[in-house]
Amino acid sequence: TVKFKYKGEEKQVDISKIKKVWRVGKMISFTYDEGGGKTGRGAVSEKDAPKELLQ
C-alpha cells in the first residue's frame, strides 16, 4: 500500500493498482486504477516511497 496526499487529502492505494511510475526530481509520481475506468494520480517523496514502487 502506498500512502500519499493529493490536493490536501490523505489517500492510499494498493501497489497492485499502480499502472505507471516515474521520477520527478526527489518525488516519485504515479498513476493508478481508481476503478470505474478512472485513472488517479499521486506522488510521494523518494524517502517515503515503498521499495516496490522504486523497482
Rank of each mutant, 00 (worst) to 15 (best):
residue 41 R to T: 09
residue 30 F to L: 01
residue 48 D to H: 12
residue 31 T to D: 05
residue 1 T to N: 08
residue 6 Y to N: 05
residue 45 S to Q: 12
residue 36 G to Y: 08
residue 50 P to M: 03
residue 31 T to K: 04
residue 13 V to A: 04
residue 28 I to P: 00
residue 50 P to V: 04
residue 43 A to I: 15
residue 40 G to A: 11
residue 25 G to P: 02
residue 34 E to K: 11
residue 31 T to E: 09
residue 3 K to S: 09
residue 17 K to Y: 09
residue 12 Q to W: 11
residue 42 G to A: 07
residue 46 E to F: 15
residue 50 P to H: 04
residue 31 T to S: 07
residue 24 V to E: 11
residue 26 K to E: 12
residue 7 K to H: 12
residue 29 S to Q: 15
residue 17 K to H: 11
residue 35 G to A: 06
residue 17 K to P: 00
residue 9 E to K: 13
residue 20 K to Q: 11
residue 22 W to H: 04
residue 53 L to A: 01
residue 14 D to A: 13
residue 1 T to H: 10
residue 13 V to K: 01
residue 43 A to L: 14
residue 24 V to N: 12
residue 54 L to W: 08
residue 37 G to P: 03
residue 52 E to R: 08
residue 51 K to R: 12
residue 8 G to Y: 03
residue 28 I to E: 00
residue 25 G to R: 05
residue 11 K to T: 06
residue 11 K to P: 01
residue 34 E to S: 09
residue 39 T to K: 06
residue 53 L to G: 01
residue 13 V to F: 03
residue 16 S to Y: 09
residue 6 Y to L: 06
residue 34 E to V: 10
residue 8 G to H: 05
residue 28 I to Y: 06
residue 3 K to G: 03
residue 18 I to M: 06
residue 44 V to S: 02
residue 43 A to D: 08
residue 21 V to C: 08
residue 22 W to K: 04
residue 23 R to F: 08
residue 8 G to F: 04
residue 42 G to W: 04
residue 10 E to F: 13
residue 52 E to S: 11
residue 17 K to S: 10
residue 39 T to Q: 08
residue 36 G to I: 07
residue 14 D to R: 08
residue 50 P to E: 02
residue 24 V to Y: 12
residue 47 K to E: 14
residue 4 F to R: 01
residue 46 E to T: 12
residue 51 K to F: 15
residue 27 M to T: 09
residue 15 I to W: 05
residue 7 K to L: 10
residue 55 Q to S: 11
residue 29 S to E: 15
residue 35 G to S: 05
residue 15 I to V: 09
residue 38 K to S: 09
residue 5 K to C: 14
residue 40 G to R: 07
residue 10 E to D: 13
residue 44 V to W: 02
residue 12 Q to A: 11
residue 49 A to L: 05
residue 44 V to C: 05
residue 12 Q to K: 08
residue 16 S to P: 05
residue 54 L to G: 03
residue 49 A to H: 01
residue 12 Q to M: 12
residue 18 I to C: 02
residue 50 P to D: 03
residue 28 I to G: 00
residue 31 T to V: 09
residue 3 K to F: 13
residue 42 G to E: 01
residue 14 D to L: 15
residue 32 Y to W: 09
residue 25 G to L: 03
residue 6 Y to I: 10
residue 30 F to Y: 01
residue 55 Q to V: 13
residue 48 D to A: 10
residue 42 G to K: 01
residue 53 L to W: 08
residue 29 S to W: 15
residue 39 T to V: 14
residue 5 K to N: 11
residue 4 F to A: 02
residue 23 R to P: 03
residue 9 E to P: 02
residue 23 R to S: 04
residue 21 V to K: 03
residue 2 V to T: 02
residue 49 A to S: 06
residue 12 Q to E: 15
residue 23 R to L: 06
residue 36 G to C: 10
residue 11 K to H: 09
residue 18 I to G: 00
residue 21 V to I: 12
residue 33 D to R: 04
residue 26 K to L: 10
residue 43 A to G: 06
residue 11 K to N: 04
residue 55 Q to C: 12
residue 4 F to L: 03
residue 45 S to F: 14
residue 19 K to V: 12
residue 53 L to T: 01
residue 53 L to M: 08
residue 27 M to Q: 06
residue 42 G to M: 03
residue 11 K to I: 13
residue 18 I to V: 08
residue 41 R to G: 03
residue 54 L to H: 05
residue 30 F to V: 01
residue 13 V to D: 00
residue 16 S to M: 11
residue 49 A to C: 12
residue 37 G to H: 04
residue 33 D to S: 06
residue 53 L to H: 01
residue 28 I to C: 02
residue 54 L to C: 06
residue 5 K to E: 06
residue 45 S to W: 14
residue 23 R to Q: 07
residue 9 E to R: 12
residue 3 K to T: 12
residue 19 K to A: 05
residue 24 V to C: 15
residue 48 D to I: 09
residue 52 E to P: 07
residue 32 Y to I: 02
residue 51 K to I: 15
residue 30 F to E: 00
residue 35 G to W: 04
residue 8 G to L: 04
residue 44 V to E: 00
residue 21 V to Y: 06
residue 50 P to W: 04
residue 16 S to H: 09
residue 41 R to K: 09
residue 8 G to I: 02
residue 38 K to Q: 09
residue 35 G to D: 09
residue 12 Q to F: 12
residue 24 V to G: 04
residue 47 K to H: 10
residue 8 G to W: 03
residue 25 G to H: 05
residue 46 E to Y: 14
residue 3 K to Q: 08
residue 46 E to N: 06
residue 20 K to M: 11
residue 52 E to D: 08
residue 50 P to S: 05
residue 40 G to S: 08
residue 43 A to M: 15
residue 18 I to R: 00
residue 1 T to D: 05
residue 5 K to P: 04
residue 29 S to R: 15
residue 17 K to F: 10
residue 33 D to W: 07
residue 44 V to T: 04
residue 6 Y to C: 09
residue 33 D to I: 07
residue 33 D to P: 02
residue 51 K to A: 13
residue 40 G to E: 06
residue 54 L to I: 14
residue 27 M to H: 06
residue 15 I to H: 03
residue 19 K to L: 15
residue 47 K to M: 12
residue 32 Y to G: 00
residue 22 W to P: 00
residue 9 E to T: 12
residue 10 E to H: 11
residue 3 K to P: 02
residue 2 V to K: 01
residue 15 I to C: 06
residue 14 D to P: 14
residue 41 R to D: 03
residue 7 K to P: 01
residue 39 T to A: 06
residue 1 T to M: 14
residue 17 K to D: 10
residue 41 R to M: 13
residue 55 Q to P: 06
residue 11 K to V: 09
residue 27 M to Y: 15
residue 29 S to L: 15
residue 21 V to W: 12
residue 8 G to P: 00
residue 33 D to E: 09
residue 1 T to Q: 12
residue 15 I to K: 02
residue 16 S to N: 12
residue 37 G to S: 06
residue 38 K to N: 09
residue 29 S to D: 03
residue 6 Y to F: 11
residue 53 L to I: 06
residue 41 R to W: 15
residue 47 K to G: 10
residue 18 I to L: 07
residue 26 K to T: 15
residue 25 G to D: 05
residue 41 R to F: 15
residue 11 K to W: 05
residue 21 V to P: 01
residue 3 K to R: 14
residue 37 G to A: 04
residue 3 K to D: 04
residue 24 V to A: 10
residue 36 G to V: 07
residue 30 F to T: 00
residue 40 G to C: 07
residue 47 K to D: 13
residue 52 E to C: 07
residue 14 D to I: 06
residue 53 L to Q: 01
residue 10 E to C: 11
residue 27 M to L: 13
residue 39 T to F: 13
residue 34 E to L: 15
residue 35 G to R: 04
residue 17 K to T: 11
residue 20 K to I: 07
residue 34 E to M: 15
residue 48 D to K: 10
residue 28 I to V: 07
residue 52 E to Q: 11
residue 35 G to Y: 05
residue 6 Y to V: 12
residue 43 A to E: 12
residue 28 I to R: 01
residue 37 G to L: 04
residue 35 G to L: 06
residue 55 Q to R: 13
residue 45 S to N: 15
residue 42 G to H: 02
residue 55 Q to H: 11
residue 41 R to L: 12
residue 50 P to T: 05
residue 41 R to I: 13
residue 21 V to L: 07
residue 13 V to M: 04
residue 22 W to A: 03
residue 52 E to K: 08
residue 22 W to F: 06
residue 19 K to N: 09
residue 18 I to K: 00
residue 8 G to R: 03
residue 5 K to H: 10
residue 2 V to L: 13
residue 45 S to K: 12
residue 47 K to N: 10
residue 34 E to D: 12
residue 51 K to W: 15
residue 52 E to L: 11
residue 35 G to F: 05
residue 3 K to A: 07
residue 9 E to N: 08
residue 51 K to Y: 14
residue 28 I to W: 04
residue 27 M to R: 07
residue 32 Y to D: 00
residue 13 V to G: 01
residue 45 S to I: 08
residue 22 W to V: 04
residue 55 Q to G: 08
residue 21 V to N: 02
residue 37 G to T: 05
residue 21 V to G: 02
residue 44 V to R: 02
residue 28 I to N: 00
residue 26 K to I: 11
residue 20 K to S: 11
residue 53 L to R: 01
residue 16 S to D: 10
residue 12 Q to L: 11
residue 22 W to D: 02
residue 55 Q to A: 14
residue 8 G to M: 04
residue 24 V to L: 08
residue 46 E to A: 14
residue 2 V to W: 03
residue 8 G to V: 02
residue 39 T to L: 14
residue 49 A to K: 01
residue 16 S to I: 12
residue 54 L to P: 02
residue 34 E to G: 07
residue 36 G to D: 14
residue 7 K to R: 13
residue 4 F to P: 01
residue 12 Q to P: 02
residue 17 K to C: 11
residue 24 V to H: 15
residue 40 G to D: 03
residue 32 Y to N: 00
residue 14 D to T: 07
residue 11 K to Q: 06
residue 8 G to S: 05
residue 13 V to Q: 01
residue 37 G to D: 05
residue 11 K to S: 03
residue 49 A to D: 02
residue 43 A to F: 15
residue 54 L to V: 11
residue 36 G to E: 13
residue 43 A to Y: 15
residue 31 T to F: 09
